Simulated assay, not measured.
Amino acid sequence: MTCMKLKLNPIHKDLALRFECSVATVSNIVITWLHVMHVCLYKKFLENQIPTRHKNKTCMPSSFSPFMNCKMVIDCTEIYTEVPSQLDKQKYTYSSYKHRNTLKGLVGVAPNGTITFLSNLYVGNTSDKNIGKHCGVLTSFLAGDLILADKGFLIQDLLPPGVLLNIPPFLMKAQFSPEEARQTVTIARARIHVERAIRRIKEYKILQLIPQNLRPYSSMIFQVCGFLTTLNYPLIKEVEDRYFCE
């Protein structure tokens, strides 16, 4: 029942009819098993289980050949939520980028496309930099590690000593130089995998719109759905034969 709710997001009355129980029972079961899955799956197998850059090298795709010391590719994603009834919450969840009320989370993937970090969800007007600062992801990096990110992650001043950040160059003149254009393409070829991972997470239809009654559990929903995508077929076929290397 809970997996159906996460993947297909049928209304509770539909689930009640299918499983021959009351709507209240459906709500109790879904919330209870959401907590169980969060503890037994996400917290046990994904939280604080970020592989080292040396382990990443055992299954590094060719698109990361210029970034062999990359430990993680990070990006933020926004998830629509119902408009809150309180005016202050309407203000804080309103995203100027999406022009809707959203919740926002950070996703980190290893170079082989495996999700290795999922933050809690923040209100939609939170910047990428502030999420990176407060979600705890930066504490997992050591000197020599490289982070690939989008232009919104201006976090150089927040990084631990010796940790490197690689983001696409900013357009400071009429057009990119040939070297800047090559650099942009090279980073984009590596960064695309985090966007593909995010797309997989959002295939769980419950994340298409978080209703008000589920907003207190939105971070758990996001993290459980993210973990479940790690059970899918490898995101990058090139590294399939090395996917389970020790």
Results as ranks from 00 to 15, higher is better:
C3V: 12
M4A: 11
K5D: 00
K7G: 14
H12N: 15
H12K: 13
H12M: 12
K13H: 12
A16I: 04
R18A: 13
F19K: 06
F19W: 10
F19M: 06
E20R: 11
V26E: 02
N28Q: 12
I31H: 09
T32P: 00
W33H: 12
L34A: 06
L34G: 13
H35K: 12
M37Y: 13
C40F: 10
K44D: 04
K44V: 10
R53E: 08
T58P: 01
M68P: 06
C70Y: 01
V73G: 08
P84Q: 01
K89H: 10
H99N: 14
R100D: 15
N101L: 06
T102W: 11
I115K: 04
N120W: 03
L121Y: 04
Y122K: 02
T126K: 14
S127D: 09
N130C: 10
G132Y: 06
C135D: 04
L138R: 03
S140M: 11
F141P: 02
I147Q: 00
G152D: 00
Q156N: 15
Q156E: 15
D157S: 15
P160Q: 07
G162Y: 07
L165M: 11
Q175L: 05
A181D: 09
R182A: 15
Q183H: 09
V194A: 00
A197E: 09
I198M: 02
L207S: 00
Q208T: 08
Q212S: 15
S219W: 02
M220D: 05
F222H: 03
Q223P: 03
C225T: 14
T230P: 10
I236F: 08
I236G: 06
D241I: 14
R242P: 03
Y243M: 13
F244W: 12
C245S: 14
